[in-house]
Write a protein that binds this DNA or RNA. Structure first.
Lengths: 337, 337
DNA sequence: CTGAAAGCGCTTACAG
DNA sequence: CTGAAAGCGCTTACAG
């Protein structure tokens, strides 16, 4: 139980008061060069490191930021976390991961964070706060940045999901497709995801420009995941007039679509075109046509934004909009017949 | 800045001392039913939640566990983190992720954790501590569990990597392959990874049983990743007598091998058999023959083990050995010629 | 069963 | 420039 040195030990050994040691540690100025050096030497000799808990209690700052994320479901989240983690390195801030697997947990985590004594800042990925939650966070004085979700009062890093849906759909329209289906998230299972609904809007807008509508049987929604997408694809393929192309709200779903097509003996892209969303690593590998968004970068940008804001209570809720790009690969082709 | 209630507020309003409130919060016994109810009512009325920092300072317990992980490199780590996170839910413990991308960071993070005032426990993934570090951790009284790495003094959750290498190699030998190459990690870049070296040992043992040896040109090592594996495969294929099969130390590498073979016009499995390791989701999708290890489960088991040990200073260093299984799919076949 | 007090290891006015 | 002291919000012997 290594008996760690405390600030008192350092002070005693250096022949000064603890206040002076603290000043050397923080203030910098208002300490004579002599004293500073003596204290620093003792600190080194004793291998003294300030206790963060004590400091936190005293200053009200924790040096720790929370990330709320639907971790278990989306590989894209992992990319974002990488960007965040990278940016936090060397910033002297911990990253505490608050994993969310159910709507209940989502609510719980928001409440726990807003309780307000554990973190300096919050980064929420994909899980938009309610008005109520946003207010709680503000009241707790907790700097917050949203990533891949929105709230009018909070700074955020986002993409134009509507445009993303349009990009995917337009690509298919230009290839001659007319029977285009959309596969995405259920409206709202309590997570308050919004990206999928927006992408669907974009899909509808693009179709409308061609005088087409997104008919009900061509819209399939369900929880995220390859297996679900597989099942939904089976449904689409069983339709009297199956679609010739499917726009999906994520690469993971697109993989499920391809899998289902393959089991059903439907050739991609000859008989069915598929567009994903995200451009995960696996997309390049599989040759998936997709809408690329800068996942890792988005995490870095959000983290930097948060670090800038921590402490300062300024806060016009800026919005950083990241670029999208359609990446055509081998899962889309001109319409067959 | 919502003026959160403190234990003092509760005590005042309930007409008792703070010690009593604290007892209601913790002890349970030694408080009259009357008092307890009164205090609990006030706690509810004031929406009081104890300040964890203060509690931590006072008890020396942080309710927070650290996970050191080579996060940025391995998708398999993500699976493990899921298992850990799942197990921690409802345990009232935070998970702080200490990401490691370089050997320097590895050393830094170990040192920071061993400083000893921020965490109740440590879970180290794939990054074996040195004797020195293990001792520091013990001195700091920090409960530690290792996952996918070993130290004689610490409890650990592992697989038999040697056996894993044997399983993969034997499968190929039984298919008639004799020119078998191994592709894995460089000996040690400072991370202290050991899995790859063990798997290679297993590969050699299996070969020896057939009177074969693992010749130098058939051993290719490099940092983890698809791109590197691609390059190493190019080297192998350029050999005067290229291998007919490659055992890789991870699915990610196996994907790089397949990619390289495809670019080089070498058909898999007809001209080249490939075995991965891990059985990531993508393996099933791609049809990769691989050695399956229970990644997510391993995280859960390690987390549970850690939670059991936190606080209790007992500690015979148990070892939990998880099962391996060869999963034959479409990237291995009987030797061609 | 319960209150008053000391203590956890820091920071930060307040004097000087 | 520097020391002594109060305070951050808890827990936990110590009395009673």
């Amino acid at each position: 139980m290594g008996e760690r040195a405390t600030i008192g030990d350092v002070a005693a050994r250096a022949g000064v008061g603890v206040g002076t040691v603290s000043r050397v540690l923080n203030d910098s100025r208002n300490v004579s060069e002599d004293t500073r050096e003596r204290v620093l030497r003792v600190i080194r000799d004793l291998d003294y490191r300030p206790n963060r808990r004590a400091r936190a209690l005293s200053t009200g700052r924790t040096q720790s930021i929370a990330v709320i994320a639907p971790f278990a479901t989306e590989p894209s989240v992992v990319e974002r976390l990488r960007g965040i983690s990278h940016e936090l390195h060397g910033s002297d801030h911990d990253l505490t991961l608050l994993d969310v697997a159910t709507p209940d947990q989502r609510d719980q985590q928001y409440r726990a964070v807003a309780a307000g004594d554990r973190f300096d800042g919050l980064l929420a990925i994909s899980l938009a706060p309610t008005d109520d939650e946003a207010e709680q966070l503000a009241r707790a004085g907790l700097s917050t940045v949203l990533l891949d979700c929105e709230h009018p009062d909070l700074p955020r890093v986002v993409i134009d999901d509507v445009r993303g849906g349009m990009l995917a759909t337009r690509h298919l329209l230009q290839l001659g497709h007319r029977r285009i289906a959309f596969m995405g998230d259920v409206a709202d299972r309590g997570f308050r995801f919004s990206a999928s609904a927006r992408r669907r809007e974009g899909c509808e807008l693009a179709l409308r420009a061609y005088g087409l509508a997104l008919e009900e049987p061509y819209v399939r929604v369900g929880p995220h995941g390859r297996a679900v997408a597989h099942r939904l694809t089976d449904e689409l393929l069983a339709l009297p007039e199956p679609p010739s192309a499917i726009v999906t709200a994520s690469d993971t779903r697109a993989l499920g679509v391809i899998e289902a097509a393959s089991s059903a003996g439907v050739r991609v892209p000859q008989e069915l075109s598929v567009v994903g969303f995200d451009d995960l690593d696996v997309a390049a590998y599989v040759g998936l046509t997709t809408v690329r968004q800068p996942l890792r970068t988005s995490g870095g940008i959000a983290a930097r934004l948060l670090l800038e804001r921590i402490g300062r209570l300024v806060g016009d809720p800026v919005e950083k909009m990241l670029e999208l790009e359609l990446v055509p690969r081998r899962t889309t082709a001109a319409v067959g017949v």
